[in-house]
Nucleic acid binder design. Structure first.
Length: 593
RNA sequence: GGGCGCGUGGCUCAGCUUGGAUAGAGCACCGGGUUCCUAACCCGGCGAUCGAGGGUUCAAAUCCCUCCGCGCCCGCCA
């Protein structure tokens, strides 16, 4: 069995190679810290080996040509456990490990740790990941969903990496939009303006949800308020009531209803939240007031002619022309950024690390928030994960107002319809409920993967055909590979775990290659969590599925003879690893499809 | 104008954190593969002066500078 506490099958091999290189270098008269060797060692290997060590830096120290140094490092390399060969190729020392040793460690870890393979033990203090936090004023469009998928995947990765994660959704119930909602909802429908009632046509249809419902009438309400000052004044009064801590009695319930509709859509994508934080609470509990008190005593505080409070924060590295931060209006009401300071102080009180997932249009807000935290003497800062917009082919961001938004619900509906067609074309034996279940999983998997695979800082142009791809580098391809592995294990049920595998039997090149991909999973998870590059996880899932399919075509499993138990063990390890990767990406595992 | 981000085959992306050996995928296109464990698959082919220029380095898609192009932000909105 693998040593207690080991999580990465490569660890003992890498440690042995590092020790060997250090020892070999010592014979050349060079003392190297193990950490330096370790960081220079290429764990992905190269064309000539499983692990590669470039000798250039050493050659400078030794004042000899790189190939010569590489040669000497290789020839002086001591016999080490698990190391099959060490040879110089040009300026590189190439190490080949014993594939059976790696296979044994990998299968033991993947099968032994099961769902915990790739995960690390709990370590560190509590972490808050705030994401999505879209204003509850209408349905999600695809642009907003990038935040949810990024944040949710990040939270899953952080948990796997050992963090104690709490996810939060910050609910804005204080804006004018929220006030518009409770204003119109408080009225009996027959008192609604004609134009709003007209926009309300179609209500009660099958796809109707509170968020869709309000999303439909919002433009009409907004237009109506422009031409009707009386009504606008009523809405302004609602804003005031919320500000003063006495919102209309139904205010929060209405906001909650719309939010529930939105969350139902996200739920289909596997996105959920541990906690919901209401913005108005920070006003009610006096914490915004306390923030303002602290800001007022800042040497950079200035009071405007109309009584507004501002901070001249030139010292905090803000862009020119953005250093004048108004933190309280002339009429004494609060501002978003000030409330956000209060929110972050609450987060810092509870969490060791605070992560905020924000669209790039909030970049300046993030820096302003930092500046204000500095102003009040708070030493800690949130870690911002910033992503770029999803735009439409015609150009520009998705906009409800311009009608260019693609609703998540519509994308889901189309994806499910296409997935159903695909399932039906392949499977005639399935019950209707299974067809639905698989189609839903394929559809949501395609969408999640499509967004997770692209680096957050890349701008994305939304195209239906791309988002609905079920082939190649896609979620369904990974899900399909998982189902294939599951199917093999089902059909091979005569052999049951624990499979009595013999790592020496896994000698085919495709088997060795597959073991290597399984073996690097823990490293990928750790990197994804550390760097917030969730695309590396999506890329890995595809790579593992891809190599599994190659293996599948290259060697028989169930029909093999002496290799059968070992191959089944490998398939079981792949299924486990692929499943763990799907979990982290928030894709549904399908045992059959 | 200032700030932030992006620019890699026809298209969409990975690789940039920590510089290392012929730049990896997917889609599209061309040619193959199913009496055999799920063809949402596999094999082969085609296709890239990594936006341009300069710099650092033994070595640059990766680090630095300049420029060009594209996107977003620059409210007593959120």
């Amino acid at each position: 069995m693998a040593p207690e506490g080991q999580t990465d099958p490569w660890d003992p091999l890498v440690a042995a190679v590092v020790r060997g290189l250090v020892e070999s270098a010592r014979n050349l008269g060079l003392e190297l810290p193990e950490a330096d060797v370790r960081s220079a060692l290429n764990l992905d290997g190269g064309p000539e080996g499983d692990l590669a060590f470039p000798a250039h830096r050493l050659s400078a120290m030794a004042r000899r040509a790189p190939p010569e140094v590489a040669q000497q490092l290789a020839s002086g390399f001591p016999p080490s456990p698990g190391v099959r060969s060490v040879a110089a190729t040009g300026a590189y020392v190439n190490v080949r490990v014993d594939p059976a040793v790696l296979a044994r460690a990998t299968l033991e870890l993947a099968l032994g740790r099961g769902g915990a393979y790739g995960h690390r033990p709990r370590a560190g203090g509590p972490v808050c990941v705030e994401h999505t936090s879209a204003n509850p004023t209408g349905p999600f469009h695809v642009g907003r969903v990038r935040n949810a998928i990024l944040g949710d995947t990040l939270a899953r990765c952080a948990r796997a990496a050992g963090a104690d994660v709490t996810t939060q959704y910050y609910i804005d119930d204080m804006g004018r939009q929220a006030a518009m909602i409770s204003w119109i909802w408080a009225k009996p429908r027959d008192e609604w303006p004609e134009s709003v009632r007209a926009a309300d046509e179609g209500r009660g249809s099958e796809t109707d949800k509170p968020d869709r419902h309000f999303g439909r009438i919002y433009p009409a309400v907004s237009a109506y308020l422009k031409d009707h000052p009386d009504a606008a004044a009523e809405v302004a009064r609602v804003v005031q009531q919320v500000e003063s801590g006495t919102p209309p009695s139904n205010h929060r319930q209405i906001t909650q209803q719309i939010l529930d509709g939105m969350l139902a859509s996200l739920g289909r994508l596997g996105v959920g939240f541990d906690e919901f934080v209401w913005e108005s609470d920070f006003l009610r509990d006096g914490s915004v007031g306390r923030v303002l008190d602290r800001l007022r005593s800042s040497p950079h505080a200035v009071t405007e002619e109309n009584g507004a409070l501002a901070i001249d924060a030139a010292a905090h590295g803000l862009p020119k022309e953005s250093t004048h931060i108004v933190v309280q209006r002339g009429d004494g009401t609060s501002l978003y950024v000030t409330r956000d300071v209060a929110y972050h102080l609450q987060k810092f009180a509870r969490f060791e690390r605070v992560v905020d997932v924000l669209g790039q249009d909030h970049q300046l807000h993030a820096r302003t928030l930092d500046a204000l935290l500095a102003e009040i003497g708070e030493p800690r800062r949130p870690e911002f994960v910033i992503y770029q917009d999803i735009t439409v082919p015609e150009g520009g961001r998705m906009s409800t107002r311009k009608g260019s938004a693609v609703w998540l619900d519509d994308l889901l509906a189309e994806a499910v319809a296409r997935a159903r067609t695909e399932v039906l074309a392949r499977r005639e034996d399935l019950a209707e409920s299974d067809v639905d279940r698989i189609a839903e999983a394929v559809a949501t998997g395609a969408i999640r993967f499509h967004i997770a695979r692209v680096a957050p800082e890349k701008p994305v142009v939304f195209r239906w055909e791309d988002a609905l791809s079920f082939e190649g580098r896609s979620g369904p391809f990974v899900q399909y590979s998982y189902a294939r592995a599951a199917s093999l294990l089902r059909r091979g049920a005569a052999d049951r775990p624990p499979y009595p595998f013999d790592p020496e039997r896994l000698a085919d090149p495709e088997e060795i290659a597959l073991v290597k991909v399984v073996a690097k999973f823990p490293r990928i998870v750790a990197y994804a969590a550390r760097s917030a590059h969730i695309q590396s996880l999506a890329g890995y899932a595809h790579e593992l599925a891809d190599q599994f399919n190659r293996f599948y075509h290259a060697v028989p499993v169930l029909k093999s003879d002496v290799e059968r138990p070992s191959r089944l063990a490998l398939v079981a390890a792949v299924r486990q690893t692929l499943g763990n990767a799907l979990d982290l990406l928030g894709l549904v595992r399908l045992e059959t499809m």
